[in-house]
């Protein structure tokens, strides 16, 4: 059985483990806010008002709904992975 007890906990004790988790959760919140902004806000909630503004030759909300949101999603994941590399190293929990 692989339970938590066998696994190395954060060196530097509980406080450091809490700080690491806080940094992670904070980053997740920021990135998910952007995630919701480009999809639910720009592509759905503001779909009607943003239809009057053009990006290139298509309405802005249409662009977000059919292209911009997906491009942002890809970028968000790589940004998360990259920033977590730094956070892992800072708290010395990387492999």
């Amino acid at each position: 059985m692989a339970t938590g007890r066998k696994v190395a906990v954060v060196e530097g004790g509980e406080e450091k483990a809490i700080a690491y988790w806080k940094a992670n959760v904070r980053l997740i919140f920021i990135l998910l806010a952007i995630w919701a902004l480009v999809s639910y806000v720009a592509g759905i909630i503001l779909a009607r008002p943003l239809v009057t503004i053009n990006l290139g030759q298509v309405p802005l909300s249409f662009w977000f709904a059919h292209q911009g949101s997906m491009i942002t999603f890809v970028v968000l994941i790589f940004v998360y992975a990259k920033l977590m590399d730094g956070i892992d190293n800072k708290f010395d929990v990387h492999e």
Partner: peptide, 18 residues
């Protein structure tokens, strides 16, 4: 032990051996 398990999944180190 379950709370310890949750603590451990939150930290990357040790995934190879887990």
């Amino acid at each position: 032990e379950i709370q310890d398990l949750v603590e451990s999944v939150r930290v990357p180190r040790g995934a190879g051996s887990a």
